[in-house]
Design a protein around this nucleic acid. Structure first.
Length: 467
RNA sequence: GUCCCCUUCGUCUAUCGGUUAGGACGCCAGAUUUUCAUUCUGGAAAGAGGAGUUCGAUUCUCCUAGGGGAUACCA
């Protein structure tokens, strides 16, 4: 039997980080087993579902590299099929019409709580004759769930979890307006899509018991369940917008590489011995449900950032250059010409060693494309005092006389200059850096000279010298 | 309130009855270095509490505490 997993977000907002992890686990499990990973948009809440959110989910999945098989299923479009099942249940006496008003429902809840009983619908219409129905009230359809006994959910992550059936009331299958509820829809869709493994957040654990009852009543096979722990914010509380509950596109905008985020998310709640940096191939190869932890994990930006740095350092230069191109263009307000892009690519090796985000990478490469004369920051200005400028003047002359702009020749010239001046290399390198980059932080100074080339290097040095 | 789940360094985790409780991030100190990083070396840092089971519990059981989730005509 082929393994089929699915990710089933409701399009009421962006693809948040918790959803992304759920999607990742489903994707990995399917890929690991050579199965299928399906996408289903749970858009039955017409009020809150938006096209923008659907688009954001697709985009987020693509950005993370989580490709799904087959066309996405839109749950709302299957409402007739869902309702059919409800009607079938009705015909079989496994469901019934309920005419209780919202006020009655609220009353039941309050009373149950007051009496320390589970707050549940009391089943008042369960066995009543339809002829008793009040006039003018559109009924809902409720599932006739077992009153006693227990429901055992055999969860791959949580283990065997038992729920007393009296704890679970008769849930609504069809609303008064005839539309199916989530509980009915998921069960029918997962069945029709041949989903074998349901991997989702453990906030659905109780739902699993209810859904299992429904599945059994219909007579279908119960799928495997794996309820994974939720992600918490740094303070241990549920992830909110304040922490990391941002859309994945927010992480992209903060300069995180999708592969770094994916690695981080994978290690959050799942482990493979002491392995930390895990490639996609390894992840697919190693992923299993057994190694998913049972406790909630806190989101830690510091670790994400560290991983991001590792992935940036190991990334391909051209790939990174292409990534930062639009960022630089946004920063400078002008389009990058091909020569500049080549320059950036050439400098990338030294640049990426120092970056912890794509954004900071873009920022640190700005000096490469800056127009002369450079705008110097304060620290750079203070480095270029009279004495330093005199040194740079002589250095510029020395560089000017170089037969060719060869990296080694340039380095030798600078070192020779330092020696001639009786200065340590640092004493000459820092003012030089200030003149060449306008800042006090950059890749190695010889790399900078090499990448910038003769004209820019000498020009920038001369620009920095007053008069 | 009721039901369910969770609990090892600050954080993510390893350990599947016997370990000096390991690794990673972060932090501290040092080395390398033309800046910043990188890299390297070293360090501080943990079994929530209490009972049991056992020759022996971080590991198994129970209780307590703390945290989380679910309790909708949302998904």
């Amino acid at each position: 039997m082929t393994i089929v997993t699915r990710f089933a977000p409701s399009p009421t907002g962006f693809l948040h980080i918790g959803g992304a992890r759920t999607a990742l686990f489903n994707w990995l499990y399917a890929r690991h087993n050579g199965g299928k990973f399906l996408l289903r948009i749970e858009d039955t809440d017409r009020e809150r579902s938006t096209d923008a959110a659907i688009e954001a989910i697709f985009e987020g999945m693509k950005w993370l590299g989580l490709d799904w098989d087959e066309e996405p299923i839109f749950q709302f479009s299957r409402r007739e099929r869902h309702a059919d099942i409800a009607r079938q249940l009705l015909a079989e006496g496994k469901a019934y019409y309920c005419y209780a008003s919202k006020e009655e429902l609220a009353e039941m809840r309050d009373q149950a709580r007051a009496e320390s009983r589970p707050p549940a619908y009391d089943g008042r219409w369960r066995d009543r004759d339809p002829s008793e129905a009040p006039a003018g009230v559109q009924p809902v359809v409720r599932f006739k769930s077992p009153n006693d006994g227990v429901t055992l959910v055999r969860d791959l992550v949580q283990g065997d979890v038992t729920f007393a059936n009296e704890q679970l009331d008769d849930m609504i299958l069809l609303r008064a307006d005839g539309t199916p509820t989530y509980m009915l829809s998921v069960v029918v869709d997962d069945h029709d899509m041949n989903v074998t493994h349901i991997i989702r957040g453990d906030d659905h654990l109780t739902n699993a018991a209810r859904q299992q009852q429904l599945i059994e009543a219909i007579g279908w096979a119960v799928p495997e369940y794996a309820h994974i722990p939720l992600i918490h914010g740094p303070d241990g509380a549920k992830l909110s917008k304040r922490h990391g509950a941002l859309g994945v596109e927010a992480y992209r905008d903060m300069g995180y590489l999708p592969e770094a985020l994916r690695n981080y998310l994978l290690r959050l709640g799942w482990s493979h011995g002491d392995d930390e940096v895990i490639s996609t191939e390894q992840a697919i190869d190693w992923f299993n449900i057994e190694n998913i932890g049972k406790s909630a994990a806190r989101f830690d930006f510091a670790k994400l950032e560290n991983l991001n740095g590792i992935y940036i350092r190991n990334a391909d230069d051209a790939y990174l250059a292409a990534l930062i191109k639009p960022i630089i263009e946004r920063m400078t307000g002008t389009d990058l010409d091909p020569n500049h892009l080549k320059l950036i690519e050439k400098a990338m090796n030294g640049l990426k060693e120092r970056a912890k985000s794509v954004n900071s990478l873009a920022e640190s490469s700005l000096f490469l494309v800056a127009e002369r004369p450079l705008v110097l920051d304060d620290k750079a200005k203070s480095l270029l005092n009279e004495e330093a400028c005199a040194v740079l003047q002589r250095l510029a002359d020395r560089l000017e006389s170089l037969a060719e702009w060869d990296k080694d020749l340039v380095e030798n010239a600078v070192r020779a200059a330092a020696e001639a001046e009786g200065l340590k290399l640092g004493k000459i390198a820092q003012p030089l850096r200030a003149a060449l980059t306008g800042t006090t932080v950059s890749p190695g100074i010889f790399d900078v000279l090499d990448v910038l080339g003769r004209d820019q290097s000498i020009g920038r040095i001369r620009d920095a010298i007053p008069g």
